[in-house]
Amino acid sequence: MDYLVNVDNMTFSRGERVIYDGVSLRVPKGKITAVMGPSGIGKTTLLKLIGGQLQPDSGDITFDGDSIVNMSRRELYQTRRRMSMLFQSGALFTDMSVFDNVAFPLREHTKLSESVIATIVSLKLQAVGLRGAAQLMPSELSGGMARRAALARAIALDPDLIMYDEPFAGQDPISMGVLVKLIRELNDALNLTSIVVTHDVTEVLTIADYIYILADKRIIGEGTAEQIKHSDSELVQQFLRGEADGPVPFHYPAPSLQESMLGEEV
């Protein structure tokens, strides 16, 4: 199988705190790969590492065979034109209308005439169901609409790879359904490769072709949805079932309650 992104034995830390310790994963071309894990594990960090916004301490990350880690700034910017990212907040430019937001990457990176840009923007907005909202400002959109508008912007340049950062977080059931459908349909229709980073288990199991589960600075489980469901790892099962206590403890590490309340002599 052909892989678009390859993370090889990557280690990354912020100050003293180690986020990843020897993580390896591969993202097959044309498929939806999900990366799941508890909050605060550094899932967004992984996307920033793949996008070259952060540098790993050791290990390598390649995009279509080229090492992101060793790229010059110019090469990195060239490569980024082939990838795009849907941020959790949407990250629409608040001083531009939805139309201008979607047109932004086209105006920056192409020499297309305004009429061609208008046509492309309309098509992209049609794909996410927001053609009627083209002239609205981001502040006039609901959370779900903002994310769809950002998705239209993310596919404006027809990238090879699209990275979704928590696309389902804070969405109502209808918006969630719309986003799930869009991610699947866009991936297949545009022959994209998608990485979805999320902790919404149910949604991801329905759309992902391959799943990695991150916890404890490494990958603790991987496989197709079926394989993951039948994994014998306690940690994976705790995560899938949403149990409060288990290998990931409910309590943040602390001395015993008895000891702190009554003193050490007890």
Partner: peptide, 14 residues
């Protein structure tokens, strides 16, 4: 804070 700077970078705009 709203990730607009990050999204510019990811859109290959400095």
């Amino acid at each position: 804070a709203t990730e607009q700077l990050s999204s510019l970078e990811m859109m290959a705009v400095d």
